[in-house]
Design a binder for these strands. Structure first.
Lengths: 342, 342
DNA sequence: CGGCGTTATCGAAGCGCTTCGATTGCTTAG
DNA sequence: CTAAGCAATCGAAGCGCTTCGATAACGCCG
């Protein structure tokens, strides 16, 4: 493996000139630069990461905690970890994978040994231990997700409240006056991130303020049928459904509706809000306001990199506005019988 | 951040003594060691990764390529990446995540800059470009999965052939004489790893050598029903099913069987062979010979670490024997009508 | 009591890079 | 014609660690 020394000799210049030519931190004449570049190619030179890190006091590595609660969807996490990695590469950073068992220790270690310059925390729970840790750590930390207490933290997340409002707006504009929300498994609501709760609250608040009928159900299994029945029982005139639930539940909704003689969007309009699309052969057949890793991850990485390079001060909580993806699952509300119409 | 210098001063010894005390590479008196350890704790000392890597010429990092074909299951990959990470931590290595776009470049970069000491390649395709690259690279590479040409490579994989033989043996021993295989989506067969093909071949070969009736079907969708019908049409007396297919297909099999009045294991015995269990709320209700990341990943990491530490020479292909997990989905073959019995 | 092998510790030379200040060789103003 | 200014380059001092050979202190044998 060639070193900077070899390159310098080959190009007939000093080591420091090579360094400056490659980093661009000082001006180097075109002629010299050309000779240096030629030498690099000829010798197949690549600067040694450890030497660079030691001298420059930055490793160009970002650590990513890849949590895995028993009930979070691993495919979604993979997607996030990958998007973080892709975004990091755009800034010439690599990513270190920290597993959950080791998340706290791993964060400490990466910071203490300067293995990583900064940390991205995924799948943030409402009362996340990593929040307290982040406050103590010597390196910048950015959360993708928002814990309960954001004091002193930097967080990025989808604007779930906006997603819910957009969903309801879309349905109301299409004339729907009775809308149900299929939320998460009750356990998930307890244990996981706090967005499902935020979603439920905003749904209830905003539906009320719009003056429409509404109900929320919490499916117990991966099958949407019981949840649907629950909603229909409480909301007989329901013509709109908002989904913020586990992917399997959503996947099975179309079948459940069909089994009850209901067609999307003729009889019922459906919008999935704040769900992460799994990369399956069969995507959700509904209009979506996705919690898309491609939206939040690059923002989080940008913020972290700005922090690392001193380009910007810490920014508190950044909410990313969701983007409406139409699949034709929303249509004007069916004309109700005069009795049901309010 | 404290340096080894601070520790040495605090403990009243030379830097090298601290280094030896911490690495254990030379003997240090109990007394001195105690003072050094106390100083480390007092100063909250952690050796700087980059300095250590530069001096020792090893980074204690393993790179993992985490590819993501459109039709591979991301949750499975996450599981593999995580298991590699966990196994690596057991040897005090960290893992760097390389994404697919960047897999080739990333492998080159990690090797050239000595960012990583070694590389683990996941989701190996039959004709994987990374194979050729691995042969050129200066650092050890271990594949989890087996490409067509293994010349000069180190690979670890499940022994799929053994899994298939064990499945057939289990069914034959229970008296089944007519067994179907539900394989993969035809496209997957082309594009992905080569194990699905190996599975089909071994199934046909071994079923034949056992003298039983058999058939193979390739489901076009995520629904098992058409595949099941196909098998039943070609194998009217079928009492056993072997699964080596996508998880959604397997998940829907029980329902498809039920819809045709068939109960597991009363009417049909089912074994899933060489499938990666997804960590869903509802696991597969079948006997399984899983391609379990917890089986292959630690083996791959062990081999890589041995290679890195010069403890063992390259080992070619290592096949890991699957472990039978019973779920009660195999029972004696139903008594057939004399006509059907051969 | 001198020489020798042990054992525990020290000192110093790197590892390959970044970066600061100094130097060189010009050009231009005074 | 000299001082000043500028651009391009060089030299050397680290960054914090590992590791090799040297050294010192000690007991042991002859």
């Amino acid at each position: 493996m060639a070193t900077i020394d070899d390159v310098a000799r080959q190009a007939g210049v000093a080591i420091s000139t090579v360094s400056y030519a490659l980093s661009g931190k000082r001006k180097v004449s075109a002629d010299t630069r050309a000779r240096i570049e030629a030498a690099c190619v000829a010798l197949d030179y690549a600067p040694r990461a450890s030497a660079r890190a030691l001298a420059a006091n930055r490793s160009e590595v970002i650590a990513v905690t890849a949590p895995l609660h028993p009930d979070t969807d691993p495919s979604a996490h993979m997607a996030f970890a990958m998007e973080v990695t892709i975004a990091a590469r755009d800034h010439d950073y690599d990513t270190l994978l920290l597993v959950h068992d080791d998340a706290q220790q791993g964060m400490r270690r990466s910071a203490a040994t300067a293995l990583a310059d900064g940390i991205i925390v995924l799948d943030v729970a409402a009362h996340d231990e990593r929040a307290a840790l982040a406050r103590k750590l010597s390196c910048p930390v950015v959360f993708i997700g928002v814990p309960e207490d954001t004091e002193g933290l930097v967080c990025v997340d989808l604007d779930f409240e906006a997603a819910i409002r957009q969903s309801i707006d879309a349905l109301v504009e299409a004339g729907h006056r009775s809308v149900g929300l299929i939320s998460q498994h009750p356990e998930t609501l307890e244990r996981e991130s706090n967005y499902p709760l935020r979603v439920v609250h905003e749904f209830e608040r905003y539906a009320q303020s719009c003056g429409i009928d509404f109900a929320v159900t919490y499916p117990e299994t991966d099958d949407a049928a019981p949840a649907l029945d629950d909603l229909l029982a409480r909301l007989p005139g329901m013509t709109g459904v908002v989904l913020n639930t586990a992917n399997p539940v959503a996947q099975s909704l179309a079948a459940a509706l069909g089994a009850r003689g209901l067609t999307v969007p003729r009889d019922v309009s459906v919008i999935a809000a704040g769900m992460t699309p799994i990369m399956a052969r069969t995507p959700l057949p509904f209009d979506t306001l996705p919690l898309d890793p491609r939206l939040t991850c690059p923002v989080a990485v940008d913020i972290l990199v700005d922090l690392l390079e001193g380009k910007a001060p810490a920014r508190g909580v950044t909410l990313v506005t969701p983007i409406y993806q139409s699949q034709g699952s929303v249509a004007p509300a069916p004309v109700a019988s005069p009795l049901q119409a309010r």
